[in-house]
């Protein structure tokens, strides 16, 4: 197993008037391939900020991020987001005027790492894998439950044929039973398909099932 994502001296802070609050302080860490990580930490510790930076949605003030040894700044953040990673959000972030299938297809066709074969069939297969039947896949996402939407969000994250998936409080809006099902999905992705999952969570239940638990405190990451 090699390093899929390497953080090197990452710094980030907020400026509030004349006061600057440092969130990440020369944070360094290496994430290994095919592992399910959960990042824990108290509220306001900067978990979501760290995830945004790792997912290329925001830019660190200093430091480097390497994906498979390649500096993500050099490959441009757009390309990094499009071709190297998938993101699952707490509020699913699906496009409301598209069906579940179309949301997955969107991700599948937007990437440069297109999966070979018939995209529609592949999308149905991915949705079936995460527990969405074809009849539900063809509905507008606004007509589906939260759990179903989150499953579609996970299918969408893996549809772009990437090895690294970030999840920001993926079960935050779900009931306990659904939470369990989503955790199992992440486990399956990691164990069966060798995907690296990095999930930010408050939930001990989620972290309990991960391969590796990391604590973000005082601006740095420490293994638990």
């Amino acid at each position: 197993m090699g390093t899929i994502l390497k953080l090197e001296d990452i710094c980030y802070g907020y400026t509030d008037g004349s006061y600057k609050r440092e969130i990440l302080k020369k944070l360094s860490y290496e994430f290994q391939e095919g592992t399910f990580y959960t990042i824990l930490g108290p509220s306001g510790s900067g978990k979501t900020t760290l995830l945004s930076i790792m997912a290329g949605l925001d830019k660190q003030e200093s430091g480097k991020i390497y994906y498979m040894g390649e500096d993500i700044d050099k490959m441009t953040l757009y390309k990094y987001r499009r071709n190297k990673i998938g993101v699952v959000f707490q509020s699913y972030n699906l496009i409301s005027y598209l069906t579940g299938l179309e949301n997955v297809l969107l991700s599948m066709t937007e990437t440069d790492n297109k999966l070979p074969g018939n995209h529609k069939e592949l999308a149905y297969a991915l949705l079936n894998m995460v527990g969405i039947a074809n009849t539900k896949a063809d509905r507008l996402v606004t007509h589906l439950s939260g759990g179903e939407q989150q499953r579609i969000a996970i299918a969408r994250a893996i549809a772009c044929n990437v090895d690294l998936i970030f999840a920001d409080e993926p079960t935050g809006n779900l009931d306990t039973a659904t939470e369990q099902e989503i955790i199992k999905l992440f486990q399956m992705l990691s164990e069966r398909f060798g995907k690296t999952i990095i999930a930010v969570t408050h939930s001990n239940e989620v972290s309990k099932f991960s391969d590796h638990r990391v604590l973000l405190k005082n601006g740095i990451l420490n293994d638990l």
């Binding site: 987001r81 499009r82 993101v87 972030n93 005027y97 937007e110």
Partner: peptide, 13 residues
């Protein structure tokens, strides 16, 4: 904005 944010997060320029 939300839709645009999603598209941007997926790497749509």
């Amino acid at each position: 904005e939300y839709e645009i944010g999603v598209l941007l997060s997926m790497g749509v320029s």
